[in-house]
Structures are given as C-alpha cells and as structure tokens.
C-alpha cells in the first residue's frame, strides 16, 4: 500500500518536529513532566508515522531491524552500567554518584520552587537517555515485527 504524495510529503515535514519534541521530553525529564519512557514512546510514533505513510518495501529497505535491536540493547546496557559505576564509587547500587559534584549534570540544585537548570540531577538525565533509547528501540521493533508477518496489503 502506498499513500498519496501529499500524505508522504506531510509525514516527511512533520517527522523532524516529532523527533525534536520527543528528544526534548527525554532530555528535560528531570525538570518538566515527562521522562525516558514517555519521550521514547513519542519518538517511536515518528517511526509509526513513516510506516503509515510509505509502502512496506521502502520501510524494509530504509529501516534496519538489527539497528533498532542494537539501540534497545545499548539503552539497557547504559542503564545497568550507570547503576554499576555507583558501586565502584563507593555508594549503593543505583546510588546517585554525580549529584552535587560540579561536573556534568552536577550543579547543586536550588531548593524549593525554582525556574530549573538543565545541568542538575546527577545520574537521572543519563538514565533518562538510556531508558529513552531502550523504549524507542523496543516499540519500533514490536511494530516492525508485527508488520512483517501481515499478509497482503496492509
């Protein structure tokens, strides 16, 4: 099945905005509503948009299932490694070893109601990015795998 030219062009125009919005939700997970799971789901809807607009052969050529599976595995590995480094740093598993150190994501946060600073949060932004990668890969793999066994035009 191939949608009309108008739909395909519109999907191509909308896709960057959907991607930017999804990455915004992932990166700002420790400041505003959102986080890794929600942002990953939003990014996966960009792939759904592409799949709806284009034919199945084009999708099969352009988007590789192995790459998405590797993205998912990379997200889970980054999550576990971030949690394990806390053991090497001398705190408990899943301890926050980056908070208030002054380095990356380590600026001390202003207590109480504040306008927010992106460079705070310790390991929370890193784990948000890891989980966002994992959910993005997982949702896309589920959709592509289910699409690959549908017979006929769909």
């Amino acid at each position: 099945m191939n949608m009309s030219n108008l739909v395909r062009t519109g999907a191509g125009l909308l896709m960057p905005f959907v991607l930017v919005f999804g990455f915004y939700i992932v990166i700002h997970g420790h400041l505003t509503p959102g986080g890794g799971f929600q942002g990953g789901a939003v990014i996966a809807t960009a792939f759904v948009l592409l799949i709806v607009a284009h034919s199945r052969e084009t999708i099969r050529e352009r988007i590789s299932l192995g790459f998405l599976k590797n993205t998912e595995t990379l997200g889970l590995m980054l999550f576990i490694v971030t949690a394990l480094i806390a053991l090497a740093a001398g705190i408990a598993f899943f301890g926050n070893w980056l908070v208030n150190t002054g380095s990356l994501f380590g600026t001390p946060v202003a207590f109480g109601i504040n306008p927010g600073d992106l460079n705070t949060g310790g390991v929370i932004p890193i784990m948000n990015i890891a989980v966002g990668l994992e959910v993005l890969g997982a949702m896309s793999v589920i959709i592509l795998a289910m699409l690959s066994v549908v017979r006929g035009d769909a």
């Binding site: 505003t32 509503p33 109480g112 109601i113 504040n114 306008p115 927010g116």
Partner: peptide, 8 residues
C-alpha cells in the same frame, strides 16, 4: 514538580 510550581 518543583519547576515553576504554583505551590508546594
């Protein structure tokens, strides 16, 4: 969420 929250 403490970012610009209306109250605590």
């Amino acid at each position: 969420i403490f970012t610009n929250a209306p109250s605590t």
